Computed example of a mutant assay.
Amino acid sequence: MTNGHRTMDKEFEYKFIKPHKSLDDFVESFWLLKNHTDNSKDIVILPDGRIDLFFSQSATEPFHITLSGLETRPDQATLAAKSVMFVISFKLLATEYIIQGTISDLLDNANYLPSDFWGFSADDLKDFDLFCQKATQKIQSLLPKETDNRKQKLFDLIYSSNGEMTVKELSENVFWSSRQINRYFNQRFGISLKAYCSILRFRASFGHIKAGKLSPQQSFADQSHFIKEVRKLSGVSPKELKRNQNDRFIQFSTLPSK
């Protein structure tokens, strides 16, 4: 788990690590975010297509664990003073095999989990590398002996294309009807496949927008469609997103510089 990046200043620290290859189908990344200051910071969380398991505490909040479902709109949040959060970002297939439950009721929402979930405690927030090792071992112990090949291929195509394949193309590639796929997505995740792919395309544009490429680099129909989708999922225009005033769009602030 050495492939990742780290950004740090006197106020905030961010570190990102890719998971062990044995977890590739289920875990996107491990990451940490720390606010070293005595002041809280207002931030905006953008939809990014991930299921996040947060382990966190702050100067004013005791250790707690929360599971956050998919986001379909920008979410105003506050990064508390002297806060630390270690996070496991899951791919959707993990809900079925690792988390083992539907998350449709967590659309644009989150749930508190027991404070001893998976055997974690506040002590595990002292060392990020050890946290990642412990989380990896726990998830490896939950890995299924086999998975539904059709679903695995579907998600492989969705992620490898950054959501650019149409529902029809995906359906034809995995020999699963569009109607059945959408029923599966809506029942398990609370969202249609098309809507989910739109979120992945939006997320894939983050790096381009931060680099100043304000015209569509993915399969958006045209500039107008691109702007409309960015506004829908971020609340602002691509130009405003690039400005990232006060570093409020936290996912942009933590993107590595190219």
Rank of each mutant, 00 (worst) to 15 (best):
V84D: 06
S89R: 01
A80F: 12
N109Q: 10
A77L: 12
G119K: 09
I98N: 08
R73M: 08
Q100V: 03
L125S: 04
D105P: 06
L93M: 14
C132K: 00
D123K: 13
T78Y: 07
D105Y: 06
L106F: 07
K91M: 06
V84C: 10
D124C: 06
D105C: 05
T95F: 04
V84H: 08
V87M: 11
I99H: 10
T95E: 09
R73I: 12
L107N: 05
T72N: 05
L130K: 15
L106K: 01
E96M: 14
S121D: 14
D105F: 04
G119E: 06
I99V: 12
T78K: 13
I103V: 13
S115P: 10
F90C: 11
C132W: 01
D108C: 00
F117N: 07
L92D: 08
E71D: 15
T78H: 10
A94M: 11
K82S: 11
I88Y: 00
F128E: 01
D127N: 15
A122V: 09
K82A: 11
K91P: 02
I99P: 04
V84P: 06
W118G: 02
A122G: 07
L130Q: 15
Y97I: 07
A81V: 03
K82R: 14
D129F: 11
F90M: 13
F117M: 02
A110K: 15
S89Y: 07
A80S: 13
D116S: 13
A94D: 02
I88K: 01
A94F: 05
D105A: 06
M85G: 15
D129H: 12
F90I: 12
M85P: 09
A77H: 13
P74F: 05
L106V: 00
L92N: 13
A81H: 07
F117P: 00
F120N: 01
K126M: 10
F117V: 01
L79Y: 03
R73Y: 12
V87W: 13
D116Q: 10
F131E: 02
L79A: 09
D108R: 01
S89E: 08
F90Q: 08
F131G: 02
V84N: 03
I88D: 03
L92G: 03
D105W: 00
I103F: 00
L130H: 14
L93P: 01
L125R: 08
Q76P: 09
F131T: 04
D129A: 11
L92M: 10
